[in-house]
Design a protein around this nucleic acid. Sequence first.
DNA 1: GATTGTGAATAGATTCACAGCT
DNA 2: AGCTGTGAATCTATTCACAATC
Lengths: 207, 207
Amino acid sequence: MPQSTEISSLTINRLSVYLRGLRALQSQNIQRISSSEMARRFQLSAAQIRKDLAQFGELGIRGVGYDVSHLRQKLESQLGLDREHRAVIVGAGNIGTALARFPGLNSGSFKVVALFDNDPSRIGDDLGELKVSSSQDLKAVVRETGAEMAILAVPAEAAQENYEALADAGIKAVLNFAPVQIKERPETRVKTVDLLIFLEELASTLR
Amino acid sequence: MPQSTEISSLTINRLSVYLRGLRALQSQNIQRISSSEMARRFQLSAAQIRKDLAQFGELGIRGVGYDVSHLRQKLESQLGLDREHRAVIVGAGNIGTALARFPGLNSGSFKVVALFDNDPSRIGDDLGELKVSSSQDLKAVVRETGAEMAILAVPAEAAQENYEALADAGIKAVLNFAPVQIKERPETRVKTVDLLIFLEELASTLR
DNA sequence: GATTGTGAATAGATTCACAGCT
DNA sequence: AGCTGTGAATCTATTCACAATC
């Protein structure tokens, strides 16, 4: 039964987890798996997995389980990972350069195509495949490369204005590492990841 | 009315957001604020803010609002941020070194006291205040420094074993950046932050 | 016999709306 | 008059349990 209603972000995040697991299974040449076996492997409930998966059709075979490769393809297309997504990084400080070098961002469906900074002393620096470009060239580079996504790794004060520039350049989705609430425009989604909040959550368990 | 029941992690995360906002207010010398004004400033609902805050006592004054400084202290103590938390970083690769240099981790209640790697060629490298230490010294350094928290920034394959070593060394809470499900021990909490999952969530909106 | 897909039950989180203070 | 604290209502998510299917 195809989904009529929007899939929640909680579910989407679990799909990513399932996908990761399925890839691992495939590399071990495992072709079929049951929901309960998946549940055991990645600490979730079998009913939850079945509910999640049932949202986009009858993917499993009753009495048998799920076909690993078929399920993987289905999840990839559902998550929009069946094609390449080009991304730019804005901010060539610690986090920006670390992410630019992070292998996970250049394998699979994501590809970092540019790294921007507005500090003239950084422009031109070499990072493997990439050179640091001037923020002034943002619009042109986005147009040329067809980038749709951006990672925002600038200081908190500069986050909103850089978000605006990204939205103006036609970027559709932004992963923001600055610890501020970005005022969002309808055409450019933001997801903020605040590392301190994670640490604070952990600290609160240390009472 | 004091909380009898556990506070959910959703709530804890919002408390961090409130706290951040309160600090900003305080630096603008604002002494009192209402739930609706907080809601306006950081895009949340006023009722939610009141519910969250009411969990640990009658913090506000009816007809008036909340006292910024009092509320801030209360939240800090609730989140365990009224004292210093020492943390070690394991893994001096891209992400580990970026975090070691990240100012947010050394202001406020957190302090990075050591950075470990098991690659001999990296040991001894200088990073501002810190030198890269050998993973073999983990236990001793944790004992000497009194670190309670750790940031795990090693490759996926090495994450579980390093977690075990941290748990053995007496670390109580671990923020894990490796894209794997860590098998947790009761005495050492883990929070996994998987950057690819965030990107995948964004990508799924780009259909 | 095994395992999915799913309606019903439960649990959890958010919003509403208003009584109760200041 | 204004704003908090909170029970009740609503909405969302998870788990249960079993009929349907292979």
